[in-house]
């Protein structure tokens, strides 16, 4: 049982490996279900459960910047617990949900830790030390995902009911606080970029993009299209004297 729990936890590492290979989507339920089934000693059940979960989670992809529900840990634990208890694919979804919730909370803990590593990379750049940079780059996610692996193992070991009971003990104020912070933190990255790109002459475009979304509810992609048209207008008017070269320019922009 303990060995099985550890193995199930390690399946989460497959999710992280997905990013090492260039986002190959091996973290999708259709693949992870099969791998979990293999670990649990019932490959076929794993494949079938994975396919069913994939049907549920098919629409869940990180389009642009939307936050992901943690379907990864949900799939792994749901599949493992369903096979363990002999329940069918329908049960897998329900069994996975408490853990998926717990893992989302855990993300709030992982985020600051991951940012510590990102800032270590900044320092490696400061010293112009590519070697150190690469070491941090490779090691950091391993540490981060092993933390999650451990949680999945514990979740499997304790079973679904215990996990639910444990989650209910975390004060909601702490959960809310983490969520509020996650709503503010992205501003740091935006400001860093703005300080590089914006000046008095063009900062208005930043606000234009911001308010278009706030006022009309457009997506950033829509704003990008509008922005290209505006830029086109401005560039074309500026470049009247050298019109010949504009064609190459449009390509460059897109």
């Amino acid at each position: 049982m303990l060995l099985k729990a550890i193995l199930v936890g390690l399946v989460y590492f497959v999710f992280q490996l997905d990013f090492l290979g260039g986002t190959t989507h091996i973290s999708r339920p259709i693949v992870l279900g099969a791998i979990t089934g293999l670990v649990m000693g019932d490959l076929q059940a794993g494949i079938i459960i994975g396919a069913n979960l994939e049907l549920v989670y098919m629409g869940v992809v990180s389009i642009g910047l939307a936050a992901l529900p943690d379907y990864v840990s949900g799939t792994i634990l749901g599949t493992a617990l369903a096979i363990q208890t002999g329940a069918g694919p329908e049960a897998a979804l329900a069994l996975g949900i408490p853990v998926a919730t717990a893992m989302m909370l855990f993300d709030a803990v992982k985020t600051p830790v991951s940012l510590v590593f990102v800032h270590m990379c900044d320092r490696a750049a400061e010293k112009a030390d590519p070697k150190l940079f690469k070491i941090i780059f490779y090691v950091a996610p391993i540490i981060l995902s092993l933390m999650s692996c451990a949680l999945i193992s514990i979740g499997f070991y304790l079973g679904s009911d215990t996990v639910t009971a444990l989650i209910n003990r975390i004060p909601t104020t702490v959960q809310n606080g983490m969520n509020i912070a996650l709503g503010i933190i992205p501003a740091i990255g935006f400001v860093l970029l703005l300080r590089q790109m914006a000046g008095k002459k063009n900062i208005a475009f930043y606000f234009m993009g911001f308010f278009i979304v706030k006022l009309f509810g457009f997506s950033p992609v829509t704003v990008a299209i509008i922005a290209i048209l505006i830029a086109w207008l401005i560039v074309a008017n500026h470049a009247e004297t050298v019109t010949e070269n504009v064609k190459g320019g449009e390509l460059d922009e897109f």
């Binding site: 935006f190 790109m197 930043y206 993009g209 278009i212 990008a224 505006i230 830029a231």
Partner: peptide, 23 residues
């Protein structure tokens, strides 16, 4: 001029992302 254009697109997208991601 082209870089100016690129800057415009970039800034507007960052603005849009700020609006979408920050709550």
């Amino acid at each position: 001029t082209l870089m100016e254009g690129a800057g415009i697109v970039g800034l507007m997208v960052i603005g849009a992302m700020t609006a979408q991601m920050m709550t």
